[in-house]
């Protein structure tokens, strides 16, 4: 270990477009080698797009360094195989495939962490032969998280894991994320500030495709005026606007 303070992911001057429209503009931040960094901002400010740009899912420009090496020229599958797991917004499970097939597809290593997944998501075992498209939203989120946790990751990118879930399920997801964050660092996009407070040590706040605030999570969340200005919610937890209202929602 050279030093524990060197970030696992460093993003500098990142730009991204979706069908010709600029959705991420000159974004720079880094993710600590341990714990959770939360990526915050109102709907449509480019949070999801930033994650997709890091993974090369959408067209991007700029520097992305993973563990000291440039990954911004690589194809998505190569980036992921370096040990970055992705839990996308809206779950994106393969609806026509069974739960088991969804999980099998995600395995990247000889010995997947089946025991861990079984322990965290007991329900998925009983439903292993069910088509993923017939699961509830919460169950689909479990599949999506399980796909990521089957492998030993060096970084997990999680995009709005609690979106549209009932409070009880939000709690379950938060518990899983906490367990996951103990083994690998995480970049988390999350609207639910209670969850952010629970999990995150650092925050990066976006507005209009740019970074407008960076710092320790607690400091940001305690400053109501800052929260109000950048997120438009005065400490109100679990605030959601309708889907598809911005480039984030419409992007696929």
């Amino acid at each position: 270990m050279a030093s524990t303070t060197q970030p696992i992911l460093r993003v500098e001057g990142l730009y991204a477009r979706i069908s010709g429209q600029q959705v991420v503009e000159d974004v720079s931040f880094s993710v600590a080698p341990t714990g959770v960094t939360a990526l915050l901002g109102r709907n449509g400010v480019g949070k999801s797009s930033t994650i997709k740009a890091i993974l090369g899912i959408i067209e991007r420009d700029g520097t992305v360094e993973f563990d000291g090496e440039r990954i911004d020229g690589l194809r998505t599958d190569r980036i992921v195989r370096r040990g970055i797991a992705y839990v996308p917004e809206d779950r994106e499970v393969f609806a026509s495939l069974t739960v088991e097939e969804n999980l099998t597809l995600a395995v990247r290593q000889a010995e997947p962490n089946r025991a861990l997944v079984d322990e965290l998501f007991p329900e998925l075992r009983t439903r292993s032969q069910q088509a993923a498209g017939t699961l509830s939203g919460g169950q689909q989120q479990m599949v999506s998280l399980a796909r990521a946790l089957l492998n030993d990751n060096r970084l997990i990118l999680v995009d709005e894991p609690t979106k549209g879930l009932a409070p009880k399920l939000v709690f379950d997801v938060a518990r899983v994320l906490k367990a996951a964050a103990e083994t690998s660092p995480m970049l988390l996009v999350e609207q639910n500030l209670t969850v952010v407070r629970e999990l995150a040590q650092d925050v990066v706040v976006l507005s209009g495709g740019r970074v407008v605030h960076r710092g320790p999570a607690a400091e940001f969340l305690d400053d109501e005026r800052l929260v109000e200005r950048h997120l438009g919610v005065a400490g109100a937890e679990d605030h959601h606007t309708p889907e598809g209202s911005g480039p984030d929602g419409g992007a696929r």
């Binding site: 599958d77 992921v80 996308p88 609806a95 026509s96 990247r108 796909r147």
Partner: peptide
């Protein structure tokens, strides 16, 4: 089968489609 449904997500699982 997965790729027909959602090719992007297949690559995002680290698979060279």
């Amino acid at each position: 089968r997965a790729g027909v449904e959602n090719r992007t997500m297949v690559t995002a699982l680290g698979i060279d489609v």
